[in-house]
Design a binder for these strands. Structure first.
Length: 282
DNA sequence: GACCAGGAAGAGT
DNA sequence: ACTCTTCATGGT
């Protein structure tokens, strides 16, 4: 089975990277193997120290997907500006932002609103089982994430079995929109950050939080700073103690936190966000 | 039942 | 621009 040996100056943790909640389609077995579907491939991968063992994709694909080409130490140094983030980067050493397929990432974060990670995982899995293509790997069935047209052509009613709640119409409308937009991802990718953000927020079900997640996880806009209830709590407790914690997160507060994060953590504040989020428990 | 979860849309001010 | 309400689902 093919292997990658990590350079000694580049930290990477497969468990942190796949387990932190940025992706929803990976499962870990008791003996440390991760199984996941990425685009049209089933990937099996495990880490033993500096050794990454994998199958299901070429080495270049693995390196690209897990951002093994990203020089992490300067990024960590640039965000490590206070005791709170310092604790987080120590606790979650080797966490890297994955380069997610854009369309799947878009739908994943539309499905994430006002929900929790186990529910999001179930929804994405169900969408794949309903509309994706079956792949058999080691005598088990896996499913690709369906193309936009596969959802759009099936009709909104077919989506109801996925139990997305009020998000059903968002997913359907966005699928219709994307399926008739030529080179959607390339178009977004070519735009400056704030312009891309506004374009994403035109899609049904995509607000500020989802847009920032998509920019960060699928378009490598490392200065995006998604603010969910957890991150807001962390910011309120450790950085901006005057935040009003009673009411829901308003747009005004969201932008206040965004500006603070960019100013405090810098160009890679998105990495800071993910470390803070991953270290949220304990 | 109340409350929460990687929030967003729509109406009203 | 800002605030308030409602939304479907499942777990605690």
């Amino acid at each position: 089975m093919p292997r990658i040996t990590l350079p000694h100056n580049q930290k990477f943790s497969l468990d942190q990277t796949l387990g932190c909640g940025q992706v929803f389609r990976w499962d870990r077995t008791d003996d440390g193997w991760w199984y996941g579907v990425v685009r049209d491939r089933v990937i099996k991968i495990r880490q033993c120290g500096k050794q990454i063992t994998f199958e299901g994709a070429p080495e270049s694909f693995i390196e690209q997907y897990f951002s093994l080409d990203v020089d992490l130490p300067p990024i960590i140094n640039s965000i490590d500006n206070d005791p709170c983030i310092h604790h987080a980067v120590r606790k979650c050493t080797g966490l890297r932002l994955i380069r997610q397929p854009e369309w799947e990432c878009l739908i994943s974060y539309i499905c994430s609103t006002n929900s929790n990670i186990p529910m999001i995982r179930r929804r994405i899995a169900t969408i794949a089982e309903q509309f994706g293509k079956r792949i058999t790997f080691e005598n088990k069935s896996y499913f690709t994430f369906p193309d936009p047209s596969a959802i759009a052509c099936s009709g909104e009613l077919a989506l109801t079995s996925c139990k997305l709640g009020y998000r059903t119409s968002y997913v359907f409308k966005t699928a219709c929109e994307i399926s008739r937009t030529e080179q959607w991802a390339d178009t977004i990718d070519a735009l400056p950050h704030e312009h891309a953000r506004r374009e994403l927020m035109k899609l049904p079900g995509v607000g500020p939080k989802a847009a920032d997640c998509i920019l960060l996880f699928a378009f490598q806009k490392y200065d995006a700073f998604p603010v969910d209830v957890w991150v807001r709590r962390i910011i309120q407790h450790n950085y901006i103690k005057t935040l009003n914690t009673r009411s829901g997160l308003t747009g005004k507060e969201y932008n206040l936190i965004r500006r603070f994060a960019k100013q405090h953590f810098g160009e890679y504040c998105g990495y800071a966000q993910e470390y803070l989020y991953a270290a949220r428990r304990g």
